[in-house]
Design a protein around this nucleic acid. Structure first.
Lengths: 189, 189
DNA sequence: ACCACTGGTTGATATAGATCAAGAAAGCAC
DNA sequence: GTGCTTTCTTGATCTATATCAACCAGTGGT
């Protein structure tokens, strides 16, 4: 089984016999560091598995960039509103490093339902899991200090520290780079 | 068309001719103030439209109650993880006032797919919208001050101020009741 | 009417984390 | 390597918001 098939199977729980056919819909492509996967206000018609590299989802607020999320190897990236509802994208999505992707466009994504019997249900399941993850994230802002969010991040996604600039991690965690730096320092001692 | 059918049609975009049959799955029931709709750690097998009243979704953190969400008239309430995946509930959900509900249980919810052709897709759409709402909420914690979140809340859900204790709204917005009180005071002048 | 209870306000103080500013390190180009 | 840019760290200060504490205003029960 190709790596591509493994990614897809893992994410959506597609029956093994349908995997090869499903996988043909996903095309390999690449992004160079700093290239945009998608621009706010334009359409984003692509959903991709990240085979290597990392991307950051952000938006501007009062002239500053606020990082909403960082997606890395083995994860999915898209602008959900655009891919699901055909709206313009809510987010800027930019490659933090050279990226290799397996990508499917909006039309093909919708066509998957034609031969995967329970495709809508699989999508529903997938989006529900994303919802629960965001629910946890909201709760972390309601109930935790910056230091606790940092600790939790260490446990869940420590590997990102070696892959992407810390300033973006700080922003994603709702703190300044200075605060993140101090927390790291404090924890090393 | 009954009010029940209107609620359901509005939320899920069900074809008018299927509405009466769909509506029969939803049973009217009521909760008294302070009664629990669902308890953390137990199963939550119900999804309900709120016909009147309000409920609060919360969890305990360090012995304190942290309010994740408040749902009011015209909105849906459930513990998504429990209803979707059959897990135990992540949240405590309690009536803030006497509530009238239209409720469907997990089995019937799954049975809706048997005669509503594109039911899974409708659910997918619904959950996606919830996801986008949470995305906005996360962004509000990343990029806004307590005062700005309060202002945004005023625009979106001001009516809740007259329906539920302010301490829960404060918690949901990620601030203390004292801070909310001061912000309100400041804005009246 | 009275008491008890819950919820809201106000003031004084404390503190986590932001901001501002200056260096230090680490990448990257040539 | 040498310089140039980007990122990270450290220190000094400031500020939004939390905490603690007292008090006040409703509301429901008896």
């Amino acid at each position: 089984m190709s790596s591509k098939e493994q990614y897809i199977g893992q994410y959506f729980g597609i029956q093994p016999q349908l995997l090869p056919q499903t996988a043909t819909f996903f095309k390999e492509n690449a992004l160079l560091k700093n290239e945009y996967f998608c621009r706010q206000g334009r359409n984003c018609n692509t959903l991709s598995f990240i085979r290597s590299g990392a991307l950051r989802v952000f938006a501007y607020q009062d002239g500053k960039e606020v990082t909403q999320w960082i997606a890395a190897e083995g994860e999915l990236i898209t602008d959900l509103s655009s891919i699901m509802f055909g709206t313009t994208a809510r987010w800027e999505i930019q490659a933090l490093s050279d990226c290799e992707l397996y990508s499917i466009d909006r039309n093909d994504l919708n066509r998957l339902g034609d031969f995967i019997p329970n495709w809508a249900a699989l999508e529903k399941t997938f989006i529900s899991k994303c919802f629960l993850m965001l629910e946890d994230r909201v709760f972390s802002f309601l109930s935790m200090t910056a230091e606790e969010r940092y600790q939790q991040f260490l446990v869940k996604r420590m590997h990102l520290f070696n892959e992407v600039p810390h300033q973006y991690i700080a922003s994603m965690l709702g703190m300044t780079p200075e605060t993140l730096s101090r927390l790291r320092n404090k924890n090393l001692k």
